Structure formats: C-alpha cells, structure tokens
Lab assay of single mutants.
Amino acid sequence: MVVWDEDGFQGRRHEFTAECPSVLELGFETVRSLKVLSGAWVGFEHAGFQGQQYILERGEYPSWDAWGGNTAYPAERLTSFRP
C-alpha cells in the first residue's frame, strides 16, 4: 500500500508492506490519499489501531470520501494500518 499526506496523491509518500501502528512515527501527521496495490488492508482513524476502521480493497483512494464517504461517522484521515 502506498500513502500520501495530501489529497490527490500529493505531498509526502510512503510505501507499506507490513502493519503500521502510527504514521506519526514516520513523520506524517495524517494520511489523506492512498493506493492499495494488492490484497486488502484495514485503515484506522487513530494510532494504535483505534477509532473508526475501514476495509481498503485493491484500488485508488484519492481523498477521505473515497474510503469513508458512506458512513455515519466518516474519518477524514487515517493514522494506522494493518494488512
């Protein structure tokens, strides 16, 4: 999975191949867009795999509404991930 700290695949970029309990440890404040290259990941609103969670299947997510636009409580950012 590849993530960016700005919408539209802009800004700082990082690629994950294993779980990440906090993007803050990588110098990111948040993740605002992402691409899942294969498989599925779970993205969490807060560090430590806490808060609202989203199943992220293979594909592109250019902004928060692409992963959470249909929920009652959409998270505008993700800060931890698990494959």
Results as ranks from 00 to 15, higher is better:
72 A>N: 15
11 G>M: 00
64 W>A: 13
72 A>T: 14
58 R>L: 12
16 F>S: 02
71 T>S: 10
65 D>I: 04
26 L>S: 04
22 S>E: 04
58 R>T: 11
36 V>S: 00
43 G>C: 11
18 A>K: 09
32 R>H: 03
46 H>P: 01
37 L>F: 07
72 A>L: 13
26 L>Y: 15
34 L>T: 04
2 V>T: 05
70 N>G: 14
17 T>V: 13
13 R>P: 06
28 F>A: 01
39 G>P: 07
57 E>D: 12
7 D>C: 11
62 P>A: 11
28 F>M: 11
72 A>F: 12
81 F>Y: 03
62 P>I: 04
23 V>I: 15
70 N>Q: 10
16 F>Q: 00
7 D>R: 07
6 E>S: 12
26 L>F: 08
45 E>L: 00
23 V>S: 03
65 D>C: 08
40 A>E: 13
54 Y>I: 12
55 I>K: 11
53 Q>V: 06
15 E>H: 09
22 S>M: 05
55 I>A: 13
18 A>H: 15
61 Y>Q: 02
17 T>E: 08
4 W>G: 01
10 Q>Y: 02
76 E>Q: 15
1 M>R: 02
40 A>D: 12
59 G>S: 02
5 D>P: 06
62 P>C: 10
77 R>Q: 14
35 K>Q: 15
71 T>Q: 13
77 R>K: 10
61 Y>W: 04
30 T>I: 05
71 T>M: 11
37 L>V: 10
53 Q>S: 14
42 V>Y: 15
35 K>C: 03
47 A>I: 11
36 V>A: 02
53 Q>F: 12
18 A>D: 11
55 I>G: 07
64 W>D: 04
77 R>W: 10
69 G>V: 07
56 L>Y: 05
45 E>R: 09
32 R>T: 01
63 S>F: 06
61 Y>D: 07
43 G>N: 02
1 M>D: 04
25 E>I: 15
55 I>F: 10
7 D>A: 15
56 L>G: 01
65 D>G: 13
20 C>S: 01
50 Q>P: 02
44 F>A: 02
26 L>K: 08
6 E>W: 03
27 G>E: 15
66 A>T: 12
69 G>Q: 09
7 D>Y: 07
55 I>M: 12
26 L>H: 15
48 G>K: 10
75 A>I: 11
15 E>L: 09
23 V>Q: 04
12 R>T: 09
38 S>M: 04
63 S>H: 10
11 G>P: 00
3 V>A: 07
19 E>R: 05
69 G>N: 10
47 A>T: 12
24 L>R: 11
23 V>L: 07
16 F>H: 06
28 F>Y: 12
54 Y>N: 04
1 M>S: 02
53 Q>P: 10
44 F>H: 04
54 Y>H: 06
57 E>T: 10
35 K>W: 00
48 G>A: 10
9 F>G: 00
54 Y>Q: 06
55 I>W: 05
50 Q>R: 13
53 Q>L: 05
28 F>D: 03
2 V>W: 06
3 V>E: 02
56 L>M: 07
69 G>A: 13
42 V>D: 07
12 R>F: 02
5 D>C: 09
21 P>W: 12
38 S>Q: 12
76 E>A: 13
31 V>L: 03
33 S>Y: 01
41 W>S: 00
31 V>D: 03
60 E>L: 05
56 L>T: 01
70 N>K: 10
63 S>K: 11
73 Y>G: 13
25 E>Y: 06
18 A>G: 14
67 W>Y: 05
60 E>T: 04
13 R>V: 07
25 E>D: 13
2 V>I: 15
50 Q>H: 03
24 L>I: 13
40 A>H: 08
18 A>Y: 10
2 V>K: 01
6 E>K: 08
3 V>Q: 04
21 P>D: 08
28 F>N: 01
78 L>I: 11
20 C>W: 03
63 S>W: 03
38 S>R: 12
65 D>K: 09
42 V>E: 05
44 F>W: 09
50 Q>D: 14
36 V>N: 02
20 C>V: 14
33 S>H: 08
21 P>S: 13
19 E>I: 01
42 V>M: 10
19 E>W: 03
14 H>P: 00
75 A>Y: 15
6 E>A: 07
73 Y>K: 08
56 L>I: 08
69 G>L: 11
46 H>C: 15
49 F>L: 01
61 Y>V: 03
26 L>D: 08
79 T>M: 14
71 T>Y: 08
59 G>Q: 04
